[in-house]
């Protein structure tokens, strides 16, 4: 039997197994990131929580009250990833010449977590240059540059994945997953 935690979905308490809880937090933080520029982000997130609760409830066997992966995975599958609808949101990658690309971590094509790639896009520099600077900093400052990288990993939002782009390789994919989990944990603590 798995450990069970309490979670609030659209202000209603639910019991959920830990692995499903982790999956849920990842979905919600990805949705929040996708809606970062949407003025109604919080309201949409609550609506999504409500939809998740209803979908899971419908799938729960009679007498069961604890949500597990068996309910959550198909529920999230049906609800689908958040597709921002804000007229202002530009698609990543197809940055228009006029506006500065947002400062985001880019998992696709990253070495570690995509911080350098994101900085390079934001500052319109060659990524190789940014990486060389990062490595030089690492040598000269010892641990400090690593710490800086960690802080940026926590602070920079992740760019939405480009469906036409390559799959992120295993290190950036893991880095993204862990960072999002850690953020979700911190967010729960802060509540």
């Amino acid at each position: 039997m798995q450990r069970i935690v309490q979670v609030s979905l659209n202000r209603n308490p639910w019991s959920i197994e830990v692995d499903a809880h982790a999956r849920l937090e990842v979905y919600l933080s990805e949705s929040a990131a996708a809606l970062a520029s949407d003025p109604d982000r919080d309201e949409i997130l609550l609506d999504l929580e409500q939809a998740i609760a209803e979908q899971c409830k419908r799938r729960l066997p009679a007498n069961a009250t604890v949500i597990s992966m068996a309910e959550l995975a198909p529920a999230l599958e049906e609800i689908g990833p958040v597709n921002p609808s804000s007229s202002a949101s530009a698609t990543p990658g197809s940055s228009t010449a006029a506006s500065t690309p947002p400062l985001q971590q880019i998992s696709q094509g990253a070495w570690l977590s995509g911080v350098c790639l994101g900085l390079a896009r934001h500052l319109r520099l060659e990524v190789t240059l940014v990486r060389v600077i990062a490595v030089v900093l690492l040598f000269f400052t010892g641990g400090a540059a690593l710490l800086l990288y960690g802080v940026l990993m926590m602070l920079m939002p992740f760019a939405p994945l480009d469906p036409q782009g390559p799959e992120p390789s295993s290190i950036p994919a893991k880095a993204r997953e862990w960072t999002e989990l850690l953020r979700a944990k911190l967010a729960t603590l802060a509540r």
């Binding site: 949705s31 809606l35 949407d38 003025p39 109604d40 309201e43 949409i44 609506d47 999504l48 939809a51 049906e78 609800i79 689908g80 990833p81 958040v82 597709n83 921002p84 609808s85 804000s86 007229s87």
Partner: peptide, 14 residues
């Protein structure tokens, strides 16, 4: 899906 519809409804409301 909800993930597409909710942001769209929000935009239509705005």
């Amino acid at each position: 899906q909800e993930g597409t519809l909710y942001p769209l409804l929000s935009k239509l409301r705005r």
